[in-house]
Amino acid sequence: MSEPDTPTLDTAVLDELSASVDGDRTFVIELIEAYLADGAIHVAAIDAARATDDAEAMVRPAHTLKSSSATVGAARLAATSRELEMAGRSGSLSGAGQAAAARVASEWNATTDALRAWIADGESA
């Protein structure tokens, strides 16, 4: 279970990321766009795995979403997809797995909003 206080977006991660590329904002935005484009595909795959109760098909999209979410600071979604990856590896999506999968769509939307807001904040700053 992800901690209830895990933020949707940990902006400190994005700040660190920016610093690691010498404040190249264009690059960070490009990265977020790539994350949003690929993430949507992973979320769809997760949803399909949940609908067919296919634990094996859950592992890879959950793993990739976990990894890239962590990179852009999407902390809550990273935690949820980590749960999903583990559930998939355990071979069963019952219980906690199904619950986590059900949360992914709404968390994805929240993450998308938060990232767009972060970009907009930067534009206005």
Partner: peptide, 16 residues
């Protein structure tokens, strides 16, 4: 790396 996001970050850091 299969994650494009991760490849982008690594590539950028290595290029840097």
């Amino acid at each position: 790396d299969d994650s494009r996001v991760n490849r982008l970050v690594l590539t950028r850091q290595l290029t840097g």
